[in-house]
């Protein structure tokens, strides 16, 4: 029982980064932009938040956790939104190929993260690894009374605020996409930009806004990882392939943010299952780590096999729209 509780707790901890990434990617893909730069943007978001907190904590003798939190949150949102803006500019305004831009952005973003993560304290004249414990403890703070409750406290209330924010964002996005006028317009843009354009919807604007917003949300996944998961430090390539898992989760969730919530917990569970499964050797552990990807492939094949409109990717996904080319 205790083991199961820890497992669920850890699975959720692993899942939140992926959930942020997937929510951001879903809203991006709904506009018809397949942003393969999300893994890079998550790195950029993570390192920027960390750098923001780092420079803040260095600048004062008695850093305040709450201010550090605000600074790092803003830095993350800004950096990842800039990544999304660059992607939108190249794919929407300059009509470059989305896959190519996305992959370049990932190359850039991962390099950006690892470079500054590895060198920032050295560049700033310090020694050793970057560390922002004050800010990180603000991210890790839990609700005082509730988190002490037995079982329920551990299961539901033992996380920092970003965990709840991730779930709230996913629920809000589902509401936005299905129940609001703008959400419906956005889906129209993703399904058929020409039709949306004819209906008077500003296609480029929708693509820009949803991609930039999606990138900002995804960036929070990186911030969650460095602050709450790592506790305010950097580990080169430590974020690993979670960004790609986020893109995989979009498929598993069938482009619905609400599904991404349980999907992210499932992925988080699969990601660490190898630690908890008894009787695994070192070699078979590696095979168990394959599961999230294999599950995604299976879902992808099943979804393509089922000719169900509801579970298909947006029709114009990956294609640039140029009005005069209709």
């Amino acid at each position: 029982m205790e083991l199961l509780l820890t497992f669920i707790q850890k699975a959720i901890g692993q899942g939140i980064s992926i959930l942020f990434g997937a929510s951001g990617e879903i809203i991006t893909e709904k506009s018809g932009n397949l942003n393969l730069g999300i893994p890079g943007i998550m790195y950029m978001g993570g390192i920027s938040g960390l750098m923001g907190a780092f420079f803040y904590e260095r600048s004062t003798a008695h850093p305040n956790g709450f201010v550090g939190l605000l600074v790092s949150l803003l830095a993350t949102l800004l950096a990842s939104a800039l990544g999304g803006l660059l992607y939108s500019f190249l794919t929407v305004s300059l009509r470059a190929n989305q896959n190519v831009v996305g992959l370049s952005l990932t190359t850039f973003g991962v390099g950006f993260g690892n470079f500054f993560g590895g060198s920032i304290s050295k560049l700033a004249g310090g020694v050793g690894q970057i560390s922002v414990s004050t800010t990180a403890s603000a991210y890790r703070a839990t609700i005082p009374g509730l988190s002490k409750l037995p079982v329920i406290g551990e299961l539901l209330f033992s996380y920092g605020f970003l965990t709840y924010l991730a779930v709230v964002i996913a629920i809000f996005l589902t509401f936005y996409l299905t129940k609001t006028r703008r959400g419906l317009n956005l889906r129209a843009v993703g399904e058929s930009p020409a039709t949306a354009d004819a209906a008077g919807i500003n296609v480029s604007l929708y693509k820009y806004v949803s991609t930039v917003a999606g990138a900002a949300i995804a960036g929070l996944g990186g911030l969650y990882f460095v602050m709450e998961y790592l506790g305010g430090t950097w580990n080169n390539n430590g974020f690993g392939d979670r960004g790609w898992l986020a893109i995989a989760l979009v498929i598993l969730a069938l482009w619905k943010p609400v599904n991404a919530i349980w999907g992210s917990f499932l992925f988080g569970g699969l990601y660490i299952l190898y630690i908890y499964l008894p009787g695994l050797t070192r070699a078979t552990q590696e095979l168990v780590k394959m599961l999230p990807y294999v599950v995604t492939i299976i879902v992808l094949v099943i979804a393509s096999n089922r000719n169900n409109q509801e579970s298909q990717p947006p029709s114009s996904l990956g294609e640039a729209y140029f009005r005069e080319e209709r």
Partner: peptide, 16 residues
């Protein structure tokens, strides 16, 4: 004495 991920940043800029 910087880490070699600098080359990824350079590659990214060139590609953009």
């Amino acid at each position: 004495g910087l880490n070699e991920n600098a080359s990824d940043i350079i590659t990214g800029i060139l590609l953009f």
